[in-house]
Write a protein that binds this DNA or RNA. Structure first.
Length: 550
RNA sequence: GCGUCUGUAGCUCAGCUGGAUAGAGCGUCGGCCUCCGAAGCCGAAGGGCGCAGGUUCGACUCCUGUCAGGCGCACCA
C-alpha cells in the first residue's frame, strides 16, 4: 500500500543519504493534473539550496536513492522546475477498495485523539427567544465538528451553556409580565427595550391560562420560571428538528447556587490580580493581553451583582475540573471580545490552565435575504427567521449543508427564497443523488451489496481514467477528514463531498456496471460498493442523511 | 481611533501547513436519454486573485502599507 505518509518517510530516508538533515520534511501531495501521476513532491527543490546542486540533479539522485517498490511506486519522473512525480499502477491503487468495504462505516476513522475527552460548546443561546439562523449556523458547525472529533478518536461531549441569569432574563420576565397585564386589560405601556416578538404574547397568554390565581400578574419569580421553561421547550424543539443532541446542558444559575462563582471570585482575589475602584471590583485582565481591565462585581449603586464574565470563567473552570484538557467553543464572531477576557480570567486564577484554553471557532454573521431584501434580525423588533422556519422551507439536510459548506470566518448570505426555489438544484441533492444512484445499481441488478467484498476479484481492470480518479478521491477521505478536524473546518469535508460526488456521476455516466462482461462487472461492483460506503460516511459526519433512493 | 474577520469569473464561494497553465456551483451559449435514475453527463465563453511595495528559485497563500465592507471595543449578555 502506498500512502502519502510512507512515501514521505521514504523520501526523507533517501534525502538523508544525500546529506539532508535528519528532520527534513518534504511535501507530498496530489498533483493538480492527473497526467502528473498519483503523488508529487517538492523535495528536490527544497534540497537544491542546502546541497548546492540544481533541483533536477537532486531529483535524479533522490530517485536513485529511493526504494520505489517498497512503497508501491511503479514509476518516478522529474518534471517542471524540479518536481518528482510518482505513479502507482492500477493493481496497487485498487487495493484500497476491499479495505474500504471491509471497514465499512468505520472507514475514515482514526485514533488521533486517543480517547481523550474534549468538550465542544455551541449554540448556548439565551432562553429569551427561539433559535434563529445564526444559531443554526452554529448548531451545524458545532455538531459537525463534534462528530469529526469523534471520528478521529476523541471522546466528545456536546455542551449547551444556558444563560438563565442576568439582565436579559429580567427583561424577558418583564416583557412577558407586561404583555400578560395588557392582555388582562391593565393600563400599562410596553417597555421600550422589551422583547417585541409575537412569541412573547403567546407565552404571556399561556401564563395567564395556567396561573389564573396570579390575578394581578405580579409573581415575577413565577413568570420568570414559566417564561424560561417555555422558551427552553421551544429551543429543544428547534434542536430536535435540526437533529442535534446535547450531552449536557449547563445552567449558569447552578454556578451561583453551588458556590462555584464565589469560589472563583475568592481565588481571583487571592491571586492578587484584582482591585477596587469606583466602588466596583475589577480584574486586571490587561496583565493577560486584554486591552482594558474588566469589572467583576458592579458597584452598589449599579446593583452590586457579578458581571457576565465571572460565571463564564467559573463555568470554564468546571470544564477543566471535569477533566476536559481540551475545550472548543463555537460562537459568533460578535462575541469575539470575550475570548481574551475569559482566557485572561482563567490565567489569573493561576491553577495551571494553559494560555490557549479554551479554543475558539468563531463564525461570521448570517445575513438573511427574503424577497430580495435583507431581513434585519432583532429579538426586540420581532423580525425573525427561526431555524424551524428554515427547516420547514428547505429541509433539514439542505439547511445543515448550507451552513457547513462555507468557511466559518466568511459571512454567509442565506437567501431564503433562493434556497426554497432552487431546492432541487441544491448541492446537497447532487451529493445525495450520487449515493442513491450507487444504491440503484445494486437494487436494479438485484445484487446484495453485502455480498460484494472484493475478495478474489481482479481489480486491475479498473484502469479507466475516471475510475482511477474516483479511487484516489476515496483513498483521500481519511486524510481529508483528519485535516478538516485538525483545522476545525467542516467545509473541507463538504468540498471533498462535492468533488467526489461529481467523480461518481461522471464515472456512472461514462461506464456501466450491469450487463458488462463478468470480470468488468464484478470489479465495478466493488468500486460502486466502496464509493457508496465512503459517501455515506462523509454525509454522516456532516450530520446529513444518505438516502438509498430519492 | 484600536482589535478582529473578509475582499478570487456576472452572482455565491473553494484554493489544505507557498509550488507546475488559478477551480467549482449557479447564470449564459451549444451538445447528449431505444443504455444501472437527464434531480445527470459533455463542451464553450468568462477572472489573473481590492491596490502598492517587500521576502522567496517560486506568492491567491508570508510581511508592510493602503482602500472598502462585516463584527467588536459597557459597572449588557
Amino acid at each position: 500500500m502506498s500512502s502519502p505518509d510512507t512515501l514521505r518517510a521514504e523520501i526523507g530516508r533517501a534525502a538523508v543519504t544525500l546529506g539532508a538533515p535528519e528532520d527534513f520534511a518534504a511535501v507530498v501531495e496530489r498533483p493538480r493534473d492527473p497526467e502528473f501521476g498519483e503523488w508529487s513532491t517538492n523535495a528536490a527543490m527544497l534540497l537544491a539550496r542546502p546541497l548546492k546542486q540544481s533541483p533536477r540533479d537532486v531529483a535524479t539522485k533522490l530517485i536513485a536513492a529511493m526504494q520505489l517498490d517498497a512503497v508501491g511506486i511503479s514509476a518516478a519522473e522529474i518534471a517542471g522546475p524540479g518536481f518528482i512525480n510518482f505513479r502507482i499502477d492500477t493493481g496497487s491503487l485498487t487495493r484500497i477498495l476491499p479495505e474500504i468495504i471491509g471497514r465499512g462505516d468505520a472507514y475514515g476513522r482514526s485514533d488521533t485523539g486517543a480517547g481523550a475527552p474534549v468538550v465542544v460548546e455551541f449554540v448556548s443561546a439565551n432562553p429569551t427567544g427561539p433559535l434563529h439562523v445564526g444559531h443554526g449556523r452554529q448548531a451545524a458547525l458545532g455538531d459537525a465538528i463534534s462528530t469529526m472529533l469523534q471520528w478521529t478518536g476523541w471522546a466528545v461531549s456536546r455542551e449547551f451553556y444556558y444563560n438563565d441569569g442576568g439582565g436579559q432574563i429580567n427583561n424577558l420576565q418583564k416583557s412577558v409580565q407586561l404583555r400578560a397585564q395588557q392582555q388582562a386589560g391593565h393600563d400599562v405601556e410596553f417597555a421600550e427595550n422589551g422583547y417585541h416578538g409575537e412569541y412573547i404574547r403567546e407565552i404571556a397568554a399561556a401564563y395567564r391560562a395556567q396561573h389564573a390565581n396570579d390575578v394581578a400578574i405580579v409573581d415575577t419569580d413565577g413568570i420568570r420560571r414559566f417564561a424560561v421553561a417555555a422558551l427552553r421547550a421551544e429551543q429543544d424543539l428547534d434542536l430536535k428538528a435540526f437533529g442535534v443532541v446535547f450531552d449536557c446542558y449547563y445552567l449558569e444559575s447552578s454556578l451561583y447556587t453551588d458556590g462555584k462563582v464565589d469560589t472563583t471570585v475568592a481565588t481571583l482575589i487571592g491571586s492578587g490580580h484584582t482591585y477596587e475602584k469606583d466602588g466596583a471590583l475589577w480584574l486586571r485582565t490587561t496583565d493577560f493581553g486584554d486591552d482594558q481591565d474588566r469589572v467583576m462585581k458592579r458597584s452598589a449603586e449599579k446593583g452590586g451583582e457579578y458581571t457576565y464574565f465571572v460565571p463564564d470563567v467559573a463555568y470554564h473552570v468546571t470544564k477543566w475540573e471535569r477533566g476536559f484538557r481540551r475545550a472548543i467553543n463555537v460562537q459568533g464572531s460578535d462575541h469575539h471580545s470575550t475570548v481574551t477576557r475569559v482566557r485572561a480570567g482563567l490565567q489569573a486564577l493561576g491553577i495551571g490552565i494553559p494560555q490557549g484554553y479554551p479554543e475558539y471557532v468563531l463564525h461570521q454573521m448570517v445575513t438573511v435575504m427574503r424577497a430580495g431584501e435583507e431581513v434585519k434580525i432583532s429579538k426586540r423588533a420581532g423580525s425573525y427567521v427561526t431555524v424551524r422556519d428554515l427547516i420547514e422551507e428547505v429541509g433539514r439536510d439542505a439547511v445543515r449543508y448550507f451552513f457547513v459548506m462555507r468557511k466559518g470566518d466568511s459571512q454567509l448570505v442565506f437567501d431564503v427564497d433562493l434556497a426554497r426555489s432552487q431546492s432541487e438544484e441544491n448541492p446537497i441533492y447532487y451529493i445525495q443523488m450520487a449515493h442513491a444512484r450507487l444504491c440503484g445499481i445494486f437494487r436494479v441488478g438485484e445484487i446484495d451489496a453485502a455480498s460484494i467484498t472484493g475478495a478474489g476479484v481482479d481489480l486491475s481492470v479498473l484502469s479507466e481514467p475516471e475510475e482511477r480518479e474516483l479511487i484516489k478521491a476515496l483513498a483521500d477521505f481519511p486524510a481529508t477528514l483528519s485535516g478538516a478536524t485538525m483545522a476545525l473546518e467542516p467545509h473541507r469535508l463538504a468540498n471533498w463531498l462535492e468533488k467526489t460526488a461529481a467523480l461518481v456521476h461522471t464515472w456512472y455516466h461514462k461506464h456501466h456496471v450491469l450487463n458488462e462482461p463478468p470480470a468488468i462487472m464484478q470489479a465495478r461492483l466493488v468500486l460502486a460498493g466502496a464509493s457508496r460506503v465512503v459517501l455515506c460516511n462523509a454525509l454522516t459526519v456532516l450530520g446529513l442523511s444518505a438516502p438509498e433512493r430519492m
